[in-house]
């Protein structure tokens, strides 16, 4: 048989190689029969397997990526075959977007609300329980007992009335004093059954009764100390807020003029 006629010139060349280099296999290449060397054949064989393995890994990875969210019910699958797949994806995406938008809106609203809380020191007084809490921003610095208004209605012979009640609301520290002197108002004399002296009479000035410090809240109301420490925690005052010595010192040092006091 004429091999030249059958396979062309390349056969001649390859046959020459065959005789010299011990070919490993014969393959058709571009319509011609080619005899490959063992090393080339091995290379092609390995590369085919490698390609197959890479493909397999890719497919597995894609499946894992798409199945895991399905299992966790967190996201759509690219391989899910369902007539409503597109709309389901749309719906989930939309829900997710809405949820994100709502979260953002909630955060905005929260921050607006949080902005109302003073960043510096402020005092909160509970007149029902006769307790106070000192805050710095949202963190509680100290809490303890205090004394607030006794809810007494004092009436004198001239039908004058005084209500000894701590006012509720938001107040600002209007002034600070150390070693405050109490200028006794009329009701203090009425209560004690004493005649009311003139406005600047020496008997109106009392030293030491208000403790070491006082914070002015306006309209004559103050936060001050007391010599009657045993009454702390009870509603016994004429409207002012009495605090223990150590608590008062801390409150006095932390609160500045303009600091907020919430009384409820």
């Amino acid at each position: 048989m004429n091999l030249h006629a059958l396979f062309g010139t390349s056969f001649q060349q390859e046959s020459r190689i065959k005789t010299i280099h011990h070919p490993a296999r014969i393959e058709f290449f571009k319509g011609k029969l080619v005899i490959l060397q063992k090393k080339y054949a091995l290379f092609i064989l390995i590369s085919k397997y490698v390609l197959a393995v890479i493909l397999l890994i890719c497919i597995s990875l894609m499946m894992v990526i798409n199945i895991l969210p399905l299992l966790q019910e967190q996201g759509p699958s690219l391989f899910r075959i369902h007539p409503n797949t597109v709309s389901a994806i749309d719906s989930l995406t939309r829900d997710h977007l809405v949820e994100m938008a709502e979260n953002r809106r909630i955060n905005d609203l929260r921050s607006k609300l949080d902005k109302q809380t003073p960043k510096n020191f402020y005092l909160v007084i509970n007149t029902t329980e006769n307790k106070f809490r000192l805050y710095s921003g949202k963190s509680l610095i100290r809490e303890g007992i205090c004394s607030t208004g006794s809810y007494t209605l004092l009436m004198d012979g001239n039908e004058r009335k005084w209500k000894f009640e701590t006012p509720k609301g938001i107040f600002k520290v209007q002034g600070k004093k150390t070693n405050p002197v109490w200028k006794k108002p009329d009701w203090a004399f009425v209560e004690e059954g004493l005649p009311i002296p003139s406005v600047n009479h020496p008997s109106r000035f009392e030293y030491g009764t208000l403790g070491d410090y006082a914070l002015m809240l306006g309209n004559g109301y103050m936060i001050h100390g007391t010599i009657y420490q045993r009454f702390l925690g009870l509603p016994v005052t004429h409207g002012c807020v009495r605090m223990g010595d150590e608590d008062l010192e801390l409150v006095y040092n932390k609160l500045k003029i303009g600091s907020t006091i919430y009384i409820y």
Binding site: T152, L153, L154, G193
Partner: peptide, 8 residues
């Protein structure tokens, strides 16, 4: 509110 009434 409850007040203690003190008459003088």
């Amino acid at each position: 509110t409850e007040y203690l009434l003190k008459k003088v």
